[in-house]
Design a binder for these strands. Sequence first.
DNA 1: CTTGACAGCTAACCGTTATTAGCTTATACT
DNA 2: AGTATAAGCTAATAACGGTTAGCTGTCAAG
Lengths: 207, 207
Amino acid sequence: MNTKSRILDAALTLFAEKGYHSVSVAEIADAVGIKAPSLYKHYKSKRDIFDAILLEMQTRYEIQASSLNMNGSNATVDAGIFSSVSEESLIQMGIGLFTYFLHDDYVCRFRKMLTIEQFHDTELAALYTKQYNDDPLSYQSQIFSMLGACGLFRPANTDVMALHFYAPLYLLLTLCDREPEQEPEALQLLEQHIRQFNLIYKKENAQ
Amino acid sequence: MNTKSRILDAALTLFAEKGYHSVSVAEIADAVGIKAPSLYKHYKSKRDIFDAILLEMQTRYEIQASSLNMNGSNATVDAGIFSSVSEESLIQMGIGLFTYFLHDDYVCRFRKMLTIEQFHDTELAALYTKQYNDDPLSYQSQIFSMLGACGLFRPANTDVMALHFYAPLYLLLTLCDREPEQEPEALQLLEQHIRQFNLIYKKENAQ
DNA sequence: CTTGACAGCTAACCGTTATTAGCTTATACT
DNA sequence: AGTATAAGCTAATAACGGTTAGCTGTCAAG
């Protein structure tokens, strides 16, 4: 990996732990293994590094999201995948989403950074809300409306269903960001949550 | 209000918006209407101000929590209150908890500050987890286990029930911290959530 | 009236911070 | 070979950070 992206990587790690202001450029340089002034050969200011992280992560997210059709309007989730939806496949979806969010190194550090910086700037606040509230919720909502149309789930307000499905996931995710050692309990609770969710919303006669 | 507590108040406001490190003592002094060195007549360091906020808010919380019996072990929630539990009373409980968390000025600013500082220090992380995850969840769990014992709710894993009830509340709360103008939609969604929750878990023959 | 504590001020200090200037070296291109 | 560009370095700068010293005025207690 070249120096320019190693700087980004080191900066992201530090920003995620202590926040933008609490990290000095010397610290970032140290983590990369160069001296502070050398950073300026690659980025024109400290703020520029932050902005580059933002840009990088945003494009990364959009690629990921559009490949999953998680982006707002044009919903074309393949209903075929869920035509034979089972409890296990729902659990797999939940745990998959959860562990991706939790273990992808970049995603994880970026989320922590946004968490710390969200009140500084309305742009960052909007970004956080989009990535960790609005997009996942509308994605889930679409899935449940399809499952409802297929007759697999009871008819119900799909926005609320999405909230019921996603909010526990979100809570446990932010918990594990804070206390990584609680991950096993969190995973167990997550599985119980999805099982109970399935029990509650699934039509008795379905499958 | 005397200067000493006005300093605490101003500092909390600033820390909640920008985080500890991004706020200078000059800024705090400015907000109070004095010069920076005068602060040192009341607190011996910047860190001391932060610690005073922590102490103040922690005792405030413990008073509030013990009056609601939200504190961990000794659960003696008065089951009588819920002996005639209705959908409306459940909604009132949820919205009451929500608006208290959201509108109490001190509670709100302190939560934001903890959100920003949670990754700095394991003590702060533990405090956040206690106040916004563990305590509310175990409180709700106790309530639901009582309601289950009364035969008003279907038997189910009460920890998961608590998660189902509280997690949406938590998500919407952190959303409103970030985007206060979304409060009306959040409140509406919250009410729908509780209504659906009630519909799902309540025994059909109850009442 | 005197004294002493309190709470404010200005000036100064010293460490840290982001950033710039200018030098050196190595690599790539002509 | 010669030259230009890239990427590192050291040294320096200017601003800002928290903090201390020391002065002034106020006000209550003796």
